[in-house]
Design a protein around this nucleic acid. Structure first.
Lengths: 219, 219
DNA sequence: CTAGTAAGTGTCATATATACATTATAAACA
DNA sequence: TGTTTATAATGTATATATGACACTTACTAG
């Protein structure tokens, strides 16, 4: 009996959907591919799993190599393995996702990708492989996670708010992540019931309207 | 530029957790391994994905080859790829699960496994690889799916009931699948609200107690 | 006819979701 | 200074889901 499995092996990659809010709109981090297939196409970052690294570690490494983005709390989305999803050879990919702040983030595309940029989710380019499907699945999952219970993902939403924020700002963030408008009064009830808001007893100034109360969160 | 990716490739398998109720207890379908590693150990069925088949098709094929079980509605659980989960070489597995009736099912282990048997989930043998972890994840998912909304999995629960069943029988099935006891009155409210039960105007006989009304379901 | 056993049934409290309209307060401007 | 404009702030009613909880009914066996 031989000591290696005598079956042909597919390639295995990890692909990562990184979401952020920029300019009040949901964005996703895409890279421009450096090599064929789909050279010069946009794609979600990802690459080959090394033989000695765990799937999530491979995902983290590829993400950093292609975009410079590090230290994000990835969550597995699932495996995608339609036989012809890669025109070169059989490639099975394990998809991950995360929600991160991106303002002070410096994208470093140089090494393993021709470019790395944030794209508005409402204005996406044509994507390589089956990445449009993976991304759609991730988008759906994001919307569910953001309000359904107090998950890591929901907590990440507050990263898009300044230290001191108004409830209107918070509502805008959650609306962006969910992809739908929320009722103001119901949102305020929800956030007060589910998060530990501190009323800072300060108000905004300068607006041509009634000033808003400022809050901070404690986790 | 070469036409194949010059990275080493891991092996990729599909592993399948098949649940059923037998004797009123939750069981899982395991196979006895025919070859090393873990020769003669029990394991959840599974095997190598072929180069031209989709993940779910590979899972279905392996399941049939190793157990004789066919035509089950598999759902993907996720990918497991810890580097040393297989002592021989790097193997990444994609796990699937399903809930099926098993009474008239004939297990045919002969071909690709030394044996195939149903095991009581409360009396499992030591499992090969990391299959205990995969199985634990599947068990948890099953419990959630059975009552949370009207899913395929929830519908499958009725397969464990005869054409005409009492509400007590139905409750027993759902208790087994959830792994916890349910309140009789609350269960009756729930099943009446969520399923289309037909009161057959018949009653059981022969019990040393008050006869029970018989129902059937319509989907 | 009595004992045993499982069937059958309703209410209250709590939590969550959703719909919906008016008043309050500051800045800008005439 | 007072009028306009823009956003902030607030409460109630309804519907639905969840979970706790105890007594009466009806058959069988002895």
């Amino acid at each position: 009996m031989s000591y290696t499995y005598d079956y042909p092996h597919p390639a295995v990659t990890a692909d990562i959907c990184i979401f952020s809010i920029r300019d009040g709109k949901l964005h996703v981090l895409l890279i421009k591919r450096l090599v064929d297939p789909f050279k010069d196409s946009w794609a979600i970052p990802g690459g080959f799993i090394k033989m000695d690294e765990d799937l999530i570690d491979g995902a983290r490494r590829e993400l950093e190599e292609e975009t410079g983005v590090a230290d994000v709390p990835l969550e597995q989305l699932g495996a995608y393995g339609t036989p012809d999803r890669d025109p070169r050879e059989r490639v099975i990919t394990v998809a991950f996702m995360a929600l991160v702040p991106s303002d002070q983030m410096v994208l470093a595309a140089a090494t393993d990708a021709a470019d790395a940029r944030w794209f508005d989710m409402d204005d996406l380019p044509k994507l390589a492989f089956d990445h449009d499907r993976i991304l759609a699945d991730a988008r759906e999952r994001l919307a569910h996670k953001v309000t359904n219970r107090v998950t890591e993902t929901a907590r990440a939403a507050f990263q898009f708010l300044p230290e001191k924020f108004t409830l209107a700002q918070a509502q805008a963030v959650f609306e962006t992540l969910k992809g739908e408008d929320l009722d103001k009064r119901n949102f305020r009830k929800w956030i007060a019931a589910n998060w530990d808001l501190v009323d800072l007893k300060e108000k905004t100034t300068g607006g041509r309207h009634r000033p808003a109360a400022l809050y901070s969160v404690e986790f």
